[in-house]
């Protein structure tokens, strides 16, 4: 138990550092801003209670907010992601359920499952985040393009990180 919590804490710190030091500095042509710290929400164990998940989501977003100087923006988006995670898990659950492993993992539940799972949650997170960032509907289609491109990049990086995590 202690081991698992430590493990989760380590993932948290690594993802935050990666996000802040590396991915926050990536910006292809103003349309692509990958946010991979959301992977932390994806990797939390299945049996975590909904309220705890929400609080962890809030704290994650808040940490990013504090570091990148955007109070409330990432918190709001991450809380939304934390809120939809149980719903998404219920909808896309495999036939045999989540018995095989307590953590969502690409290598146990399959690449396809993980891709759908990550895509949906990252897309919801990015939609909330980018619309809160521009905070108007005037540039609706420009923003949706940013959301889609950034989601693609974020999911790609998350899948790569998942490979690295297993390879270690």
């Amino acid at each position: 138990m202690i081991n698992r919590i430590l493990r989760i804490g380590l993932i948290f710190i690594l993802l935050i550092l990666l996000q802040v030091l590396l991915f926050n500095n990536i910006q292809f042509s103003g349309y692509v801003n990958p946010y991979i710290y959301i992977m932390f929400i994806l990797l939390l164990p299945f049996e975590i209670p909904a309220w705890l998940l929400l609080i962890i989501s809030f704290l994650t977003g808040f940490t990013i907010d504090v570091i990148s100087g955007t109070p409330g923006m990432h918190s709001a988006a991450t809380v939304v992601a934390g809120f939809v995670r149980p719903i998404v898990l219920r909808v896309i659950s495999p036939r045999e359920g989540y018995e095989l492993s307590p953590n969502p993992s690409m290598f146990i539940y399959g690449f396809r499952w993980f891709l759908i799972y990550a895509s949906i949650i990252v897309f919801i997170h990015h939609t909330t985040l980018f619309y809160l960032e521009v905070f108007r509907l005037a540039d609706f289609f420009r923003t949706i393009l940013r959301v889609i491109l950034s989601t693609a990049f974020s999911v790609t990086f998350i899948v790569l990180l998942e490979y690295i995590r297993k390879g270690k």
């Binding site: 929400l54 809030f58 918190s75 934390g82």
Partner: peptide, 28 residues
């Protein structure tokens, strides 16, 4: 509905921060 209530509270806090602490959002 505890998760829903927690969600609303946290989202409310986040949006409140968004609205008050950011000049741009506040103005809009």
């Amino acid at each position: 509905y505890n998760h829903l209530i927690v969600f609303i509270i946290l989202e409310g806090i986040a949006l409140y921060m968004l609205g008050t602490a950011n000049n741009y959002h506040n103005t809009r």
